[in-house]
């Protein structure tokens, strides 16, 4: 990773001479936020020199410092400090850029982009990516990890942006197989409701299963699922607060995905309602009705309340609804 030339002298270079559109050696995607860097440059100017290389027509191209360059331009600076490398190869400079990058926090998308470039642009063999570059990028040296990162690096920008916001990469890989309009629907939901990873996976799992079922039947795709489940209506219900709307969307999709279970749950709710259970008594069926026991618990403040609740339990014990609840297990 050493360079074939001594460190060049520090120069002050006109921004106009730099071709910022050449991103051959860029590691960080252009759209990554750079608020803190921009604020610092706005205040202090560019303090850390850019690393540049001669390019055709007397221009210079960037090896390191793409974001510094963009911030400098944005805030109207005309000159920046720079080191201009004349003999180092692209790969040597890229290696140096990586070595510099890993001194700070590195996002998986940056690792992924670096690996995709090393493989595609510089023709680095997979073995070398595993043995040399994954450790350099603070990643475990395994083929599995390499495959995941290469896959991440090959996702389109919309999905990468979603991963950068909060999308689970595994979900992103599967989402990549969806049609563009279907993807947009899902990503729009993530933007609107900002669910955590578990809820995200739940939502994706439901939509993916329902979409696949529709496609197997040859009766349309996600749009039909969205409309037929009632999720579309729930999504548009502006009168309901966002978390509840999201809950309703999931409920609608669950109903479509597991119709028998939903009917079972409805029946349980009706029967339980019919028992008119006081709030101190809690009746609980096993999750998904998969179990042989109904759980009953109650709490009370004194002996009189205890006797009252026991009386209510005894009364419940004779009700037909309770017998039917047991049949649901």
């Amino acid at each position: 990773m050493s360079l074939p030339e001594p460190l060049p002298a520090l120069e002050i270079v006109e921004l106009a001479r730099i071709d910022g559109s050449d991103e051959t050696l860029a590691i960080t995607p252009r759209w990554f936020p750079m608020d803190r860097l921009a604020a610092s440059i706005r205040c202090m100017g560019v303090v850390t020199p850019l690393h540049l290389q001669p390019a055709p027509a007397g221009k210079l191209r960037i090896a390191m410092g793409f974001r510094r360059y963009r911030a400098a331009r944005e805030y109207g600076f005309r000159k920046v400090p720079a080191l201009v490398w004349t003999r180092a190869s692209d790969l040597q400079l890229f290696d140096c850029a990586l070595a510099e990058k890993v001194t700070g926090p590195l996002h998986d998308l940056e690792r992924a982009r670096a690996l995709v470039k090393l493989r595609a642009q510089f023709g680095v063999e997979e073995e070398s990516l595993i043995d040399r570059y994954l450790p350099l990028l603070n990643a475990p040296p395994s083929r599995h990890r390499l495959r995941v990162l290469l896959r991440l690096g090959r996702l389109d920008e919309a999905l990468q942006r979603a991963v950068h916001r909060s999308l689970d990469p595994e979900t992103a890989f599967r989402l990549a197989a969806w049609r563009v309009a279907e993807r947009e629907l899902f990503l729009g939901l993530l933007k609107r409701y900002e669910p955590g990873r578990n809820r995200q996976r739940e939502l994706f799992g439901l939509l993916d299963d329902l979409r696949s079922s529709e496609r197997r039947r040859g009766s349309g795709g996600l749009d039909r699922v969205w409309q037929a489940s009632g999720a579309s209506e729930a999504d548009e219900d502006a009168g309901t607060v966002r978390p509840l709307r999201f809950r309703r969307i999931l409920d609608c999709l669950h109903r479509l995905r597991r119709p028998r279970l939903s009917r079972h749950q409805d029946r349980y709710r009706r029967l339980k309602g019919g028992l008119k259970i006081p709030p101190q008594i809690r009746l609980q069926v096993p999750p998904y009705f998969e179990g042989d026991q109904l759980s009953v618990s109650f709490s009370c403040r004194n002996q009189a309340e205890f006797r009252h609740l026991v009386g209510r339990l005894e009364e419940m014990g004779g009700r037909a609804e309770l017998g039917r609840i047991f049949e649901l297990l």
Binding site: R174, S213, P259, R260, H264, P287, Y288, F289, E290
Partner: peptide
Amino acid sequence: AFMRSRFPRSGLPLGELVPVPDGKLRYFWP
């Protein structure tokens, strides 16, 4: 998840499966 990626044409994971206490997904008991 593995089946969905390895055998994308299989309809088996699309059945009405629910998680059961032994940690697996199975058809809803009825």
